[in-house]
Simulated assay, not measured.
Amino acid sequence: MNNEINEYIKKHKKKKVRKKLVLFFVFFFSITILILLKAPFFNIADVKVENNKIIDSKEIISRSELLGKNIFYINQKDVSYKITANPYIEKVNLKRVFPSGIIINVVERKAVYFVKGSDGIYVLNSELKILEKRASIDGLNLTELTGVSPTSTDVGTYFNSDEKIKRIADNIGNLLEENKSDVKFNLVNLENTTSLNILVGDVKLLLGNDENLEIKLNNCIKILKESSIGITKGYIDVSFDGDPVIKKE
Rank of each mutant, 00 (worst) to 15 (best):
Gly101Asp: 07
Lys225Met: 12
Gly101Leu: 04
Thr232Asp: 08
Asp56Asn: 08
Ile236Cys: 02
Cys220Asn: 12
Asn197Glu: 06
Ala111Tyr: 02
Ser152His: 11
Ile55Gly: 09
Leu190Trp: 02
Ile130Gly: 04
Glu65Tyr: 12
Thr232Tyr: 05
Leu206Gly: 04
Val26Glu: 09
Leu142Gly: 12
Ile168Cys: 06
Ile121Met: 04
Ile103Arg: 11
Ile35Lys: 11
Asp170Glu: 07
Ile223Ala: 03
Asn2Gln: 15
Ile246Gln: 08
Ile231Met: 03
Lys180Gly: 03
His12Trp: 10
Lys222Leu: 11
Leu190Phe: 01
Ile83Asn: 03
Ser161Val: 09
Ile236Ser: 07
Gly201Val: 05
Ile221Arg: 01
Lys204Ala: 11
Phe114Asp: 07
Leu213Gly: 13
Glu50Thr: 14
Ser227Thr: 10
Ile31Glu: 02
Ile103Asn: 08
Ile71Asn: 04
Asn3Val: 13
Asp154Trp: 03
Asp202Cys: 10
Glu7Gln: 15
Phe42Trp: 01
Ile71Gln: 04
Leu207Lys: 13
Glu211Pro: 11
Arg167Asn: 15
Tyr235Thr: 09
Ser152Cys: 04
Ile44Ser: 12
Met1Asn: 11
Lys216Pro: 03
Asn179His: 00
Asn186Leu: 08
Asn192Leu: 05
Ser161Ile: 14
Glu178Val: 10
Ser195Lys: 15
Val148Glu: 07
Thr194Tyr: 14
Ser62Glu: 13
Gly242Leu: 00
Asp46Thr: 13
Thr84Arg: 10
Lys48Cys: 00
Leu140Asn: 05
Asn51Cys: 02
Cys220His: 01
Ile71Arg: 05
Ser228Asp: 15
Asp162Lys: 05
Lys77Ala: 14
Ser62Ala: 11
Lys14Ser: 11
Asn3Arg: 15
Ala111Gly: 10
Asn75Ser: 11
Lys180Ala: 07
Lys38Asp: 13
Ser239Asp: 08
Ile33Gln: 00
Glu59Ala: 05
Asn6Gln: 13
Tyr88Leu: 05
Leu142Trp: 02
Val26Cys: 14
Asn186Gly: 09
Lys95Pro: 01
Gly242Ala: 01
Glu178Lys: 05
Ile31Leu: 09
Lys91His: 09
Ala85Cys: 03
Thr146Glu: 09
Asp182Asn: 07
Leu217Gly: 07
Asn212Gly: 04
Asp243Glu: 12
Leu124Pro: 00
Ser57Cys: 05
Gly173Arg: 05
Gly208Val: 01
Thr193Phe: 03
Asn141Thr: 14
Phe29Gln: 02
Asn192Asp: 14
Thr193His: 13
Glu7Trp: 09
Glu163Tyr: 09
Lys222Arg: 09
Glu65Phe: 11
Ala135Lys: 14
Ser136Pro: 04
Leu36Glu: 14
Val188Phe: 01
Asp243Ala: 14
Phe98Gln: 00
Ile60Trp: 00
Lys14Phe: 03
Leu224Glu: 03
Val155Pro: 06
Val183Thr: 08
Phe72Pro: 06
Lys38Arg: 15
Asn218Thr: 13
Val123Trp: 04
Ser126Asn: 13
Gly68Arg: 07
Val155Gly: 00
Ile33Glu: 05
Glu177Asp: 12
Glu163Gln: 11
Tyr81Asn: 15
Ile54Cys: 10
Lys204Glu: 14
Glu4Leu: 15
Ser100Asp: 12
Lys58Gly: 14
Phe29Ser: 08
Lys53Cys: 11
Ile137Cys: 00
